[in-house]
């Protein structure tokens, strides 16, 4: 196991190098000369030269790449171009709200989706099953944007049950006051595809021989569902859950933008709007690292919950 982990971590090095190369090509080559963006309206030859020198843009490209590599290795990405804050401090303050939001969405959404999916899989072929599947298919077709716009308008603005937007420094205040509506909308957006996927996992398990055997030896339906089917169906469920962890960080981008939550997703959108390259580069590196680590963790968890899996 340890050898496997070490090998996988070692394999991350070329991938991370590739991500760095991709970002470097994008932002230092395709993106053109950023000093024009930074100089703004006071465009003068000296100002441009000064900015280029400050950013190291007057150096040859390989040397610039080495500077970027050093930034990644030390996880020190300099200062944001738009706010002059250190990027690491900026991201440090953004990760908390994002984790609170996406963590609660993931938790609540998964519990609800597994419950509903297990129920409709058990009742497969019935009117309830077809109705839930139909509703889920229709619900999936509506853009996430529409749920958020409509929810913010009707539940917060018209209904007045939630604050329209905002975030506070106190976690308790956030949990009680500002989190519920984004949480509700996040769960609604994710519920339909989750139910459909989990239902298919459960239905597949229900068709296996061991279910028939369990019925034949006289086990009650709840025991079969909860003890046998659920445990086997959890394998693909846990895998997909683990894979969605890094993606959820970005998936909350729309919710954070709409509800003014100072998280990573909102930061990305603002950084792209302001052409704040250091922030975009830093976030991409962090998320890529998180994705690689979670992929490794997924494989390990996969092995732990399914002894048949061989890691190689």
């Amino acid at each position: 196991m340890l050898a496997y982990i070490v090998r996988r971590v070692w394999q991350m090095v070329p991938t991370l190098f590739g991500v760095m190369l991709l970002l470097f090509v994008l932002f230092n080559w395709v993106g053109g000369d950023p000093s024009y963006i930074l100089a703004g309206k006071n465009l003068s030859a000296e100002a441009l030269a000064g900015i280029r020198q400050q950013l190291g843009l007057d150096l040859p490209l390989p040397q610039q790449f080495l500077i970027f590599v050093r930034q990644v290795l030390t996880l020190d990405f300099g200062t944001s171009w738009s706010t002059q804050q250190p990027v690491s401090a900026l991201l440090h303050s953004r990760i908390g709200p994002s984790l609170l939001l996406t963590g609660s969405i993931l938790l609540l959404g998964t519990v609800l989706a597994i419950g509903i999916a297990a129920l409709v899989a058990y009742l497969r072929g019935s009117v309830t099953d077809r109705l839930v599947t139909l509703i889920a298919t229709c619900a999936m077709s509506v853009s996430a944007l529409v749920y958020i716009i409509a929810g913010q308008y009707w539940l917060a603005f018209k209904g007045g049950w939630f604050p329209i937007m905002g975030w506070s420094d106190s976690t308790l205040d956030n949990l009680l006051h500002y989190l519920p509506l984004p949480l509700l909308l996040g769960v609604i957006v994710g519920l339909a595809p989750d139910i459909r996927f989990y239902r298919s996992c459960f239905v597949e398990e229900l068709g296996h021989d061991y279910v028939r055997t369990a019925r034949a030896k006289g086990l009650s339906e709840p025991v079969i569902m909860l003890k046998h089917v659920l445990r086997n169906a959890m394998i693909p469920v846990v895998t997909s859950l683990m894979m969605s962890l890094p993606y959820l960080m970005m998936g909350a981008m729309l919710l954070e933008t709409f509800f003014g939550i100072p998280g990573m997703g909102k930061e990305v959108v603002m950084a792209v709007e302001r052409s704040d390259f250091p922030v975009i580069k830093a976030i991409t590196i962090y998320i890529a690292l998180a994705t690689m680590l979670f992929n490794l963790l997924t494989d390990i968890v996969y092995k732990l919950i399914d002894p048949r899996v061989q890691l190689h």
């Binding site: 991938t15 991500v19 190369l21 970005m250 976030i283 991409t284 998320i287 994705t291």
Partner: peptide
Amino acid sequence: SVFTSVPDMLL
């Protein structure tokens, strides 16, 4: 592996 290690939306 490089392209899949960054979420679609971020990329």
